[in-house]
């Protein structure tokens, strides 16, 4: 139950951002401009938070008995990580996901039962917190540090349970079998080699090129946004590891036949034959036709 994964990306500029974030979450993110416009809104929101804090504490005990029962192991005694996670949640997530993770209509879905896998995927890929409501949340540099993500995960996991992150070598699976599973289950949206592709009405399946093992695993477990869920009874953990092995092998693989031109097949090839092939030859015949 840890995010200290060998493959997890570390943002080079994570240090300074983290320290600023611990003071004020709105600053320094790539979306600072957008946030500035909504600063007054946030101030209001902070006031709401303060008011709701009381209510939260009061309803805390009642809530834990109402929530789905499986996770009630350390019920009542909130660990320090969960407390820190709650604090982060209340600062950055509560406006859309509600004070008790129950979701806010037309803003954000309920987080009860999504589990730490969903939290890891959404926050580690920078999709959450959301900058604005769009057809789809784009990935961007993660706003929270790995430690803060761990705390958020602990908080969400403690309040509703859900799929948990795996441990161990996530590429420990059969390469070729992973490829077959990838083509059957994933390629229809993410393209043959994980380049991503368009979905209906502005949505898209993102490229898997920069995704780390744990993010892919978490995405399969939690089915973020429009992606279907691939539970462990549908794709076993071994199969998931095979798929991850295939994706990472293919995306890291050099192209033996020269420049990959996006690895999307005929569209870029057609572009190249006109823009490079025909253009080069036109230049050639201009030159031949010109006089010495």
């Amino acid at each position: 139950m840890s995010t200290t994964n060998p493959q997890s990306d570390t943002q080079p500029d994570e240090g300074p951002r983290r320290s600023r974030w611990s003071r004020r979450p709105a600053e320094g993110s790539p979306a600072a401009a957008a946030r500035a416009r909504r600063r007054s809104k946030q101030r209001r929101r902070l006031a709401n938070v303060a008011a709701l804090m009381t209510g939260l504490v009061l309803t805390g005990a009642l809530y834990s008995t109402l929530a789905p029962g499986a996770q009630a192991a350390d019920e009542g005694s909130e660990s320090s990580a969960e407390a820190a996670g709650r604090e982060l949640y209340e600062r950055s997530c509560i406006s859309c996901h509600g004070e008790n993770l129950e979701g806010v209509p037309n803003r954000g879905p309920s987080l009860i039962g999504v589990g730490e896998a969903a939290v890891y995927f959404q926050v580690h890929t920078g999709r959450m917190p959301l900058v604005r409501q769009e057809a789809q949340a784009p990935d961007k540099p993660a706003i929270f540090s790995d430690e803060e993500i761990d705390q958020l995960m602990a908080y969400v996991q403690a309040n509703g349970g859900g799929p948990v992150l795996p441990s161990g070598d996530l590429r420990d699976g059969d390469l070729a079998a992973g490829g077959e599973l990838f083509r059957l289950n994933c390629a229809q949206c993410h393209n043959f080699v994980g380049e991503g592709g368009a979905l209906s009405s502005g949505k898209y399946a993102p490229s898997l090129e920069d995704a780390n093992d744990l993010e892919i695993y978490a995405a399969m477990l939690s089915g973020p946004e429009n992606m279907p869920i691939f539970g462990d009874n549908q794709l076993t953990p071994e199969e998931k590891r095979s798929i991850i092995n295939y994706i990472q092998t293919i995306t890291d693989m050099p192209d033996p036949g020269g420049a990959g031109i996006g690895r999307i097949g005929p569209v870029s090839e057609g572009l190249v034959i006109w823009v490079v092939g025909i253009a080069a030859l036109l230049f050639g015949i201009f030159w031949m036709g010109s006089k010495a």
Partner: peptide, 19 residues
């Protein structure tokens, strides 16, 4: 310039497709 890298596409299977 690599063209039609069909090792990346995989063998044909009527149940599979790519975007």
């Amino acid at each position: 310039v690599q063209i039609n890298p069909l090792w990346l596409w995989g063998p044909y299977n009527p149940a599979q497709v790519s975007s």
